[in-house]
Amino acid sequence: PTIVLKVSPEELKALEKAGVEIEKIEKNEDGELYITLTPEALKKAGFE
């Protein structure tokens, strides 16, 4: 199962800087950012 999270541009930068593997980055028509994370990326980021 993949996880989709709504993030701010600042959060996205912080995640990328931390080396979190982001599978997909999407922006909706309201300009909101959503990222898709794999279970492996979540484990690496410390989420179980």
Results as ranks from 00 to 15, higher is better:
P1L: 13
P1F: 13
P1Y: 12
P1N: 10
P1T: 12
P1A: 10
P1Q: 12
P1D: 10
P1W: 08
P1R: 10
P1K: 13
P1S: 11
P1H: 11
P1V: 10
T2P: 12
T2F: 14
T2K: 10
T2N: 15
T2C: 14
T2I: 09
T2D: 10
T2W: 11
T2M: 14
T2H: 14
T2A: 13
T2G: 09
T2E: 07
I3T: 09
I3S: 05
I3A: 05
I3Q: 07
I3E: 04
I3G: 03
I3C: 15
I3K: 06
V4H: 07
V4E: 04
V4C: 13
V4Q: 09
V4D: 04
V4A: 06
V4Y: 06
V4W: 04
L5W: 07
L5V: 14
L5C: 13
L5K: 14
L5G: 01
L5F: 06
L5Y: 06
L5A: 06
L5M: 14
K6N: 08
K6Q: 11
K6M: 12
K6S: 06
K6W: 08
K6E: 03
V7F: 02
V7C: 05
V7T: 04
V7Y: 01
V7G: 01
V7K: 01
V7N: 00
V7R: 00
S8R: 06
S8H: 06
S8Y: 05
S8E: 04
S8A: 05
P9A: 13
P9Y: 09
P9D: 10
P9W: 12
P9K: 10
P9V: 12
P9F: 08
P9C: 11
P9E: 11
P9G: 09
E10Q: 12
E10A: 12
E10H: 09
E10S: 11
E10D: 13
E10P: 04
E10V: 11
E10I: 13
E10N: 10
E10M: 12
E11M: 15
E11H: 13
E11L: 15
E11N: 06
E11C: 15
E11K: 13
E11I: 14
E11F: 15
L12Q: 01
L12F: 09
L12P: 00
L12D: 00
L12E: 00
L12W: 06
L12K: 02
K13L: 11
K13Q: 09
K13S: 10
K13E: 13
K13P: 01
K13A: 12
K13V: 10
K13T: 08
K13M: 13
A14H: 13
A14Q: 14
A14T: 14
A14M: 15
A14S: 08
A14R: 15
A14E: 14
A14Y: 15
A14K: 15
A14P: 00
A14N: 05
A14L: 15
A14G: 09
L15C: 03
L15A: 03
L15D: 00
L15Q: 00
L15F: 06
L15W: 12
L15E: 00
L15G: 00
L15N: 00
L15P: 00
E16Y: 13
E16S: 09
E16C: 08
E16K: 11
E16L: 09
E16V: 12
E16I: 11
E16G: 05
K17N: 08
K17H: 08
K17M: 10
K17R: 11
K17G: 08
K17I: 12
K17P: 00
K17F: 09
K17L: 10
K17T: 09
A18P: 00
A18T: 07
A18D: 05
A18Q: 14
A18R: 15
A18I: 13
A18M: 15
A18V: 05
A18K: 15
G19Q: 06
G19S: 06
G19N: 08
G19I: 01
G19T: 02
G19L: 05
G19D: 05
G19K: 07
G19H: 08
G19F: 05
G19A: 05
V20K: 00
V20D: 00
V20Y: 02
V20W: 03
V20R: 01
V20N: 01
V20E: 00
V20L: 10
E21C: 06
E21D: 11
E21A: 08
E21Y: 06
E21S: 07
E21P: 09
E21I: 06
E21K: 06
E21V: 05
E21M: 06
E21H: 07
I22R: 00
I22Y: 07
I22A: 02
I22G: 01
I22P: 04
I22E: 00
I22Q: 00
I22V: 07
I22F: 09
I22L: 06
E23P: 03
E23N: 10
E23D: 07
E23S: 09
E23I: 11
E23Y: 07
E23G: 08
E23H: 11
E23L: 08
E23W: 07
E23K: 07
K24D: 05
K24G: 07
K24P: 01
K24V: 07
K24F: 09
K24E: 06
K24S: 13
K24T: 06
K24N: 11
K24L: 08
K24H: 10
I25A: 04
I25S: 03
I25R: 04
I25E: 02
I25G: 01
I25L: 08
E26T: 11
E26D: 09
E26Y: 13
E26V: 11
E26M: 08
E26W: 13
E26H: 11
E26A: 08
E26C: 15
E26L: 07
E26G: 06
E26Q: 09
K27W: 13
K27P: 07
K27R: 13
K27S: 12
K27G: 08
K27A: 07
K27C: 14
K27Q: 11
K27H: 09
N28R: 12
N28I: 05
N28E: 05
N28G: 10
N28A: 13
N28V: 05
N28M: 09
N28L: 11
N28P: 03
N28W: 07
E29M: 09
E29L: 10
E29N: 11
E29A: 12
E29F: 10
E29D: 12
E29V: 12
E29S: 12
E29W: 10
E29P: 09
D30N: 14
D30Q: 12
D30K: 11
D30W: 15
D30L: 11
D30T: 12
D30C: 15
D30E: 12
G31F: 02
G31N: 08
G31I: 01
G31D: 08
G31S: 03
G31R: 02
G31H: 03
G31E: 06
G31P: 01
E32S: 14
E32A: 08
E32I: 07
E32W: 13
E32F: 13
E32Q: 08
E32Y: 11
L33H: 06
L33T: 12
L33A: 06
L33G: 01
L33D: 02
L33Y: 14
L33P: 01
L33C: 09
L33E: 02
L33M: 09
L33S: 04
Y34L: 13
Y34D: 02
Y34N: 06
Y34S: 07
Y34A: 06
Y34E: 09
Y34H: 06
Y34V: 12
Y34Q: 08
I35A: 04
I35R: 00
I35Q: 00
I35H: 00
I35F: 01
I35Y: 00
I35L: 07
I35V: 13
I35W: 00
I35M: 02
I35N: 00
T36Y: 14
T36S: 08
T36D: 02
T36E: 08
T36K: 04
T36W: 14
T36H: 13
T36L: 04
T36M: 05
T36C: 07
T36Q: 06
T36G: 02
T36A: 04
L37R: 00
L37I: 11
L37D: 00
L37C: 04
L37G: 01
L37H: 00
L37F: 06
T38H: 03
T38N: 04
T38D: 05
T38S: 05
T38Y: 02
T38R: 02
T38E: 05
T38F: 03
T38I: 03
T38A: 04
T38K: 03
P39L: 15
P39N: 14
P39E: 15
P39K: 15
P39D: 14
P39C: 15
P39H: 15
P39Q: 13
P39W: 15
P39M: 15
E40W: 01
E40Q: 05
E40Y: 02
E40N: 03
E40D: 08
E40L: 03
E40C: 06
E40H: 04
E40R: 02
E40T: 04
A41G: 07
A41D: 08
A41Q: 14
A41T: 04
A41K: 02
A41H: 03
A41W: 14
A41N: 09
L42P: 02
L42I: 14
L42H: 15
L42Y: 15
L42M: 14
L42D: 02
L42N: 05
L42A: 15
L42S: 07
L42W: 13
L42E: 04
K43H: 12
K43I: 12
K43L: 13
K43P: 02
K43M: 14
K43N: 15
K43T: 14
K43V: 12
K43G: 14
K43Y: 05
K43W: 04
K43R: 14
K43D: 13
K43Q: 13
K44F: 01
K44T: 03
K44D: 15
K44M: 02
K44A: 02
K44W: 01
K44Y: 01
K44E: 10
K44P: 00
K44C: 05
K44N: 08
A45C: 11
A45M: 09
A45P: 06
A45Q: 03
A45S: 08
A45I: 08
A45H: 06
G46E: 05
G46M: 03
G46A: 02
G46H: 03
G46W: 04
G46Y: 03
G46S: 02
G46L: 03
F47R: 14
F47M: 15
F47H: 14
F47L: 15
F47W: 07
F47N: 07
F47G: 10
F47P: 05
E48F: 02
E48A: 02
E48Q: 03
E48G: 05
E48S: 02
E48L: 05
E48H: 02
E48R: 01
